[in-house]
Design a protein around this nucleic acid. Structure first.
Length: 459
RNA sequence: GGCGCGGUGGCAGAGUGGUGAUGCAGCGGACUGCAAAUCCGCGUACGGCGGUUCGAUUCCGCCCCGUGCCUCCA
């Protein structure tokens, strides 16, 4: 049962066979650090985190590289608007990014290279492209010559004629060909810049990924991922740069997550449906956001909705309840991922199917009567959680989560009321017991009387 | 205009050439002081029209609808 991945380059599912099974390399395009991560940024983070977890389970050594783009015109513009130094903006935003995605249970990549720390690598790459006749200088810029690459456009399946016909942006006069793109551009004194053979300047958008992927993964490596919107021009141009510079293949498998929409519409600030990850973490646990994202296959368009988030929370309630109801059982076989779930994930990360199996496991756990059966199903459920990045937290912590600025009762106040109700029930004062239940319910706290006492959770 | 992606039951969302996942919501039952949770049972869905086939939601064609990209947005 091989790992099968949908390769954008070939537009079909392919068996994944790493170049070197002892060192699997994956490069994913990371954030441009000028603002808080939004919900659309979260999808590739979560999707490729899952792939990373799966790869680590299948191969002994996986190197996951996700860059930080900390030189960019949007950064420059934002720093100017904020009246703060660029370095302060990028440092602050990078830290916020790390906090946000950690809350989504995304593991840190093995390497997280920053563009500004690799300028010399980019310059060297550009020099190679110039030397090989794939780039040219013009008015302080260095441009990649698209016509110099015979098979440009393979990934996005565009012919150069089409691109010219469809071009709707005014072509800079110094470009020899409308499709040529910038490798290096001049910087004025008020902008970030580095000395180069072409004067003080800064890199174009695409070159950093070509330079840094080679640095950490080599010229040819296994997997390159990102959002579908990066297929063109970003990934296409990365391929052009890397292949033309090195004369060898670049990434072998290209994976792209589908677009994200919000309540059926494109997310945009003007529509008022623009959410940052931070906004959502105030409303729901990060784990619920993660599960919501994984409820749709990564390749499909994903529609972010309040209802979807509610369902994700309900699903996690169900799974955590199965764990809570067997709190006294020590799980067994947690290292053994159930075969159905492994098979689902190995089939191009079929997370919806894997989640369906999670429900089966929870059902089995709920139905089990013998302790050894419970231990087995509980271990299986937790094993799935480990690879999916779910069910990692303390069960009670899950049920006690409160939204930011919530006016709910404190945990202590709930405990005190629960205790009073226990006493009322012991005295057969069911009117008082029901009154307390009602009072708690009005504050979003649900009670569950079980054999082992009364448990509560916030709804 | 060019190049893509998608349309599955009330909702979300897998999957498959023929015994039609899973969850949420809903209904009925068991259990419970009452609940909740849990368990049991219940829903003949696959955008439209053709074609191939013994048989299509699944393959092919056309159409309709939604959505994305087309040089710096994950």
């Amino acid at each position: 049962m091989p790992l099968v991945l949908y390769n954008t380059m070939t537009r079909r599912k392919e068996s994944f066979e790493p170049l070197d099974p002892d060192r699997v390399g994956m490069y994913v395009c990371g954030p441009t650090v000028y603002d808080r991560a939004h919900i659309g940024n979260a999808r590739p983070v979560i999707v490729f985190d899952l792939l990373y977890r799966l790869l680590k389970r299948l191969y002994p050594n996986v190197v996951y590289v996700r860059n930080i783009t900390d030189v960019d015109d949007k950064i420059n513009a934002r720093a100017r608007d904020n009246g703060e130094p660029i370095a302060a903006l990028t440092a602050r935003t990078t830290q916020a990014f790390h906090e946000d995605i950690a809350a989504l249970n995304a593991l840190p990549p093995d390497v997280e290279p920053r563009a500004t720390a690799h300028i010399s690598h980019m310059i060297a790459l550009i020099e190679t492209l110039l030397a090989r006749g794939h780039a040219y200088e013009a008015e302080g810029h260095v441009l990649f010559s698209v016509p110099s690459m015979a098979d440009y456009g393979q990934l996005s399946r565009r012919s150069q004629d089409e691109m010219i016909a469809g071009a709707r942006v005014e072509v800079a006069p110094y470009k020899r060909d409308a499709a040529d793109f910038v490798l290096w551009k001049p910087s004025s004194d008020d902008l970030p810049g580095w000395d180069s053979p072409w004067g003080r300047g800064r890199p174009g958008w695409h070159i950093e990924c070509s330079a840094m992927s080679k640095e950490y993964l080599g010229i040819t490596f296994d997997i390159h991922g990102g959002g579908q919107d990066l297929v063109f021009p970003h990934h296409e141009n990365e391929i052009a740069q890397s292949v033309c510079a090195h004369g060898q293949p670049f990434a072998r498998y290209w994976l792209h997550n589908g677009y994200l929409m919000v309540e059926g519409e494109k997310m945009s600030k003007s529509l008022g449906n623009f959410f940052t990850v931070r906004d959502l973490l105030d409303q729901a646990p990060g784990e619920a956001i993660r599960l919501a994202m994984l409820s749709t296959h990564y390749h499909q368009p994903f529609d972010w909705t309040a209802e979807g988030l509610r369902q994700a929370r309900a699903t996690l309630d169900r799974l955590y309840l199965a764990l809570r109801n067997t709190a006294e059982i020590r799980p067994k076989g947690r290292d053994n991922l159930p075969i159905e779930v492994l098979a689902a994930l190995k089939d191009d990360l079929n997370t919806p199917l894997a989640i369906a199996h999670l429900h089966d496991l929870a059902g089995n756990l709920n139905k089990a009567t013998k302790p050894e059966e419970k231990a087995k199903w509980k271990g299986a459920l937790l094993a799935c959680g480990d690879v999916l990045g779910l069910l990692q937290q303390d069960v009670e912590a899950w049920f006690r989560w409160t939204p930011a600025g919530g006016t709910e009762l404190t945990d202590e106040a709930v405990d005190a009321l629960v205790q009073r109700r226990i006493e009322a029930r012991a005295a057969k004062d069911f009117a008082e017991a029901d009154r307390i239940r009602k009072e708690l319910a009005d504050h979003g706290v649900l009670l569950e009387d079980g054999a082992g006492g009364t448990a509560w959770r916030r709804s």
